[in-house]
Design a protein around this nucleic acid. Structure first.
Lengths: 352, 352
DNA sequence: CAAGCCGTGGCAACCGGTGGCCACCGGGTC
DNA sequence: GACCCGGTGGCCACCGGTTGCCACGGCTTG
């Protein structure tokens, strides 16, 4: 590539390899290239008959607009970025799918970036992706609020699972969810509950813990919390002794990954779930229903989160002002399965 | 956007909003724009001192090359597409991660498209993505061989988990894996094994079944196969009665999803695993270790598959000829867990 | 001392669309 | 009959890089 000398221009006439351009279509239809452009991007601006002729010529040549060329002067790349902190976390599967669906529906291509829970990788991915996309969805970003606002200034941005002042966001109704979990446990007679905490940088973690703390007195429950845990199976498994140390009869885990890890750790320690300890997770990820025992969990509307985030983004693209300032709250729902049961009476009597 | 009249050109002088271009850098460094371009894309072509001056000016202005503008004349978009048949299938998590890693390492952006197991969606996604990317990785495509070759003609292509004549591919060593699974079962005394079959369009399915069929006589085992199943938990669960009907003492499932579904179905039917029936899966996906019982499975080198596919693609990008014709075989490994045990003696005696 | 070569920088065409501006045309209006 | 107006199509500058070709200057070489 490179020499655009006259010989190249001449060769163009019948270069089979190259895909057809508006110029080829224009020649075939006997109009100017700009008219072809308008026939596609501005229906109504061109006479119906002319447009028909152009479309016929285009169809015959197999013309397809070059998205790069279109994007260069207009900035309309038809791409959106979805940045997720960890693609291997099943939490994101449905979010990705929901986002993909909404993007495809709006004729946009979704660019999914995995940042391995690393702030550096997140910056890098954003650096790379920002100039290419029309908007960004940040899924559980580990960036600071300030950094997110910087991103939002450069491109329309929607944040999932976190609230950042001034940036539109879509979140699960964690407060209601966490409260439902605690109510469920209280109704089963649990009076002491541990919260197996998530990463400090996690917005959802703070939200969940605060809600438990607030709701506890009304429900006659005492709550404690562990040190921050990695949001993984290993993180949960590693917290087993810490959890047992609190002598609580129930544990609410930061998320299902931690809860399932805990299930394993407890089983290995010979502690019965739900006989000795009840466990509740968050999110209802893939696997929550087939671990043993099946996990009681606060189901997040995962697919809806992704979908809603992209839709919000697309709305914001049209108008100049970002969509509503208040976060969209999507409902969570407690799914009761086998990992919760009435509290074991401390005296040693079993209630079942 | 649109009016590129003189007033716009003038406004450029100090337009704060716009990100700096090579022209801005050129002006600041006192050289021509082409020299700036070369300073970045062709080190050595420019005098070191000049280059240093340019880089300094660029750094000060915060210049970042516009990938779109670069890609337009050269075709080098720095993007690769990864098409997966279903993002919510945990099988792909590690593949995506491996591919992302290899892409990022090579300074490429990965565009992940989810096609929901639909051929139509796959075509659409490819239509949309092909003009944007330098190469394509097809993860378990449902397209016909011919359709894949058409794609491969338009852009360098690598196929994962399938072999298509003339197109480079990266696959798990299914033959060795399936054989290992059957040997394991034979060694445990199983003499009758059912294969819970996957979708007919699946290349891996055919491969696995044929291997079982071939290996069976040597090992003194009889194998049957069910009708094709959906490669999902539901597919496996639904196959429970069909599997039980064969009176086999062990089942090899098309993949872990099917195997885990089967585990559930068998538990619901009161059939003990591994007491009454042994179950082996394929792939070792997320969840295979925490279902009950933990699944014995032929672990696929998932992350390596994704990584290798992208690396192969990148190699092919340089040379004009596609990389080697023979598929790259990545080793599978049997992981023995709790779902397999010695065959129950038909007379009713338990061996354990 | 002329010829040749190499290192280096600038010129300008080009990638493939987009859209402001203007010209042209036919018909309606006063 | 002059004027105006809306519909329609063409011209051309422009997006932001890339690169073939050429010019210029200094140095080597015969």
């Amino acid at each position: 590539m490179g020499s655009y000398g006259p010989e190249v221009a001449r060769a163009r006439g019948r270069d089979e390899r190259r895909s057809p351009t508006i110029y080829d279509v224009a020649e075939a239809a006997g109009v100017a290239a700009s008219t072809v452009s308008r026939a596609f991007s501005r229906p109504g601006r061109v006479n119906v008959d002319t447009a028909a002729r152009i479309h016929a010529a285009a169809a015959e040549l197999g013309y397809r607009a070059n998205p790069l060329a279109r994007a260069l002067p207009t900035g309309r790349t038809s791409m959106l970025a979805l940045v997720v902190s960890d693609v291997t976390n099943p939490f994101f599967f449905q979010i990705i799918r929901g986002a993909e669906g909404a993007a495809t529906e709006a004729d946009r291509t979704l660019l999914v970036a995995d940042v391995h829970e690393s702030v550096a990788a997140e910056r890098l991915a954003l650096d790379r992706a920002l100039p290419l996309v029309e908007g960004v969805v940040l899924g559980t970003s580990r960036l600071s609020d300030a950094a997110i606002r910087v991103v939002a200034r450069e491109r329309p941005t929607v944040v999932v699972n976190r609230v950042v002042a001034g940036v539109p966001s879509v979140v699960t109704d964690n407060a209601r969810g966490a409260r439902a979990a605690l109510e469920h446990l209280a109704a089963l007679g649990h009076r002491s509950v541990v919260y197996a905490a998530g990463p400090e940088a996690s917005w959802a973690d703070g939200m969940r813990w605060r809600t438990l703390l607030e709701a506890a007195p009304d429900l006659g429950v005492r709550v404690h919390r562990t040190d921050p845990l990695a949001p993984t199976l290993a993180g949960g498994e590693g917290a087993t002794t810490a959890v047992l140390g609190t002598r609580a009869t129930a544990v609410v885990a930061y998320n299902d990954l931690v809860a399932i890890g805990l299930l394993r750790g407890l089983a290995a320690a010979g502690v019965g779930v739900p006989r000795d300890v009840s466990v509740v997770g968050f999110d209802n990820i893939f696997g929550a229903d087939f671990c043993t025992p099946a996990l009681t969990t606060v189901a997040a509307p995962l697919s809806a989160l992704g979908q809603h985030a992209v839709r919000t983004l697309l709305e914001g693209l049209g108008t100049r002002t970002p969509a509503g300032v208040r976060p969209a709250l999507l409902p969570a729902q407690l799914v009761v399965r086998g990992s919760t049961a009435p509290a074991r009476v401390t005296a040693g009597l079993r209630r079942r």
